[in-house]
Design a protein around this nucleic acid. Structure first.
Length: 309
RNA sequence: GGCACCAUAGCCAAGUGGUAAGGCGCGAGUCUGCAAAACUUGUAUGCCCCAGUUCAAAUCUGGGUGGUGCCU
C-alpha cells in the first residue's frame, strides 16, 4: 500500500508555505519541505523560511538539515525526505510535501534512480579546466566518444550536464536517459498554486524589498566567510547578488534589482517545470477572496483525492 | 530666434545604397547526484512622417514633425 502524500507546489511567492500549514492543521499533517535552499541552516530571510509563528505549531521536516558550507544534492534530499515521509505516515499523520524545487519533487514522487556515482569535486574541477582551455565543443566531443546517445541529448553549451555524464561514465556507470518509466511512489494528490503573471511579479518584487528590510544584507554578511565558491548555497538568489555588493562589485540598488529580476526568472522556470507534472490540479490564488476560501477548496479536493476520512 | 547633432522592437543599440547584428526584457521549453543551478528557443514584412533620386533606400536629397546640446 502506497503512502498517501499531499503535494503543494508552484512558483515562489505564491503562498505555498501558509497554505501548507493551514492544510496540515486541517488534515492532521506535517510538512516536508521541498526547497533546495531552505534546507540550509542560517539562510532564513533570503529563502523566506517560515519562522516559528508561521509554522503554526506544525512539524516541519527538511528545513535546516545542511550546513551552507557543505554541498547538498538531490540524492541526499531524496533519501532524507523519503525517510521523513515514511516516518510521518507511520505515526498516522498526513505528510504534506511543500516547496518549489521541481527536481526534488520529481525525484521523490517518481523514485528517480540516481545510480551510485557520487559527485567528484576533483574531477569536476579538472573538466572545468578542460572546458576553459578547449571550449564546450571539445568537452562535448569527449562525451561523444564514450556515449554517443547521451551526447546527442545534451547541448554542448550545457557543460554542467556534460561533465556529470562524463563523471558517471568514468566510474563505469550508465547515464540515465530520462526515459525510464515514471513509477509513482506515492498515492499523491498534487496541487499547484498559480497567479496571474503580472501580479506574481509584483509580489516577488515586494517580497524582495521586505527581505531587505528584514536584514538580508546582515544575514549574508554573517554567512559570507562560511561559503566557498563551491558551496551550493552560494547559488541561492539573494545571496550571490548581495555578496557581489559587499565586494563592491555593484551598488546596493543594482544588487536588489538583480535579485528581483532573478527571482522573476526563477518563478517562470518553476512554472514550466510544474506545468508538465501529470495530474497536477492548479489553483489560481488571485481568484480567491481569502486564504481561508482557498484552503477550504484545496482541503476538499485533497480529502477526496486521497480518500481521507 | 540661430547653429549643430539625433530619430531603428517594450528598453539599450549596430548597420552610411543590395534586402534589418547584438544585448536586456518578455514569452515558450529542456531537466535523473551543483537545480534559487545550467542550458535551448521565439520575439521589427520593417527603421518618425511625406515627397524625390535609383534596378535597389534604414542608409542619398528636399520638406515636415519630435528630441537633445550649444549660442543669443
Amino acid at each position: 500500500m502506497k503512502e498517501k502524500l499531499l503535494v503543494l507546489c508552484g512558483p515562489t511567492a505564491t503562498g505555498k508555505t501558509a497554505l501548507g500549514v493551514r492544510l496540515a492543521q486541517a488534515l492532521n499533517g506535517e510538512i516536508v519541505s521541498a526547497d533546495s535552499m531552505q534546507l540550509y541552516r542560517d539562510m532564513d530571510v533570503g529563502t523566506a523560511k517560515p519562522d516559528a509563528a508561521e509554522r503554526g505549531g506544525i512539524a516541519h521536516h527538511m528545513l535546516d538539515v545542511a550546513d551552507p558550507g557543505q554541498p547538498f544534492n538531490v540524492a541526499q534530499y531524496q533519501r532524507q525526505a523519503a525517510g521523513a515521509i515514511a516516518d510521518i505516515a507511520a505515526r498516522g499523520k498526513l505528510p504534506i510535501l511543500c516547496g518549489g524545487t521541481g527536481l526534488y519533487i520529481n525525484a521523490l514522487l517518481y523514485g528517480h534512480d540516481q545510480g551510485d556515482t557520487a559527485p567528484d569535486a576533483a574531477f569536476r574541477a579538472e573538466m572545468a579546466g578542460y572546458l576553459a582551455q578547449n571550449g564546450p565543443e571539445a568537452l562535448h566531443l569527449l562525451l561523444q566518444q564514450r556515449d554517443a546517445a547521451t551526447a546527442a541529448r545534451l547541448h554542448p553549451n550545457n557543460a554542467k550536464r556534460v561533465i556529470r555524464a562524463l563523471e558517471i561514465l568514468r566510474g563505469g556507470g550508465v547515464v540515465p536517459d530520462g526515459e525510464s518509466p515514471q513509477k509513482a511512489c506515492y498515492q499523491a494528490c498534487i496541487v499547484g498554486l498559480t497567479m496571474q503573471r503580472e501580479l506574481l511579479y509584483r509580489r516577488i518584487d515586494a517580497r524582495v524589498d521586505d527581505m531587505m528590510r528584514r536584514g538580508l544584507t546582515d544575514e549574508v554578511k554573517k554567512l559570507r566567510e562560511r561559503l566557498t565558491p563551491a558551496s551550493t548555497a552560494l547559488q541561492a538568489i539573494g545571496y550571490k547578488e548581495l555578496i557581489a555588493f559587499l565586494q563592491r562589485e555593484c551598488s546596493l540598488d543594482e544588487a536588489v534589482a538583480r535579485i528581483k529580476q532573478q527571482s522573476r526568472h526563477y518563478a517562470k522556470r518553476q512554472m514550466t517545470w510544474f506545468r508538465r507534472m501529470p495530474d497536477i490540479r492548479w489553483y489560481q490564488v488571485d481568484d480567491y477572496a481569502s486564504a481561508d476560501a482557498l484552503a477550504q477548496d484545496v482541503c476538499v479536493y485533497a480529502k477526496d483525492r486521497l480518500e481521507l476520512n
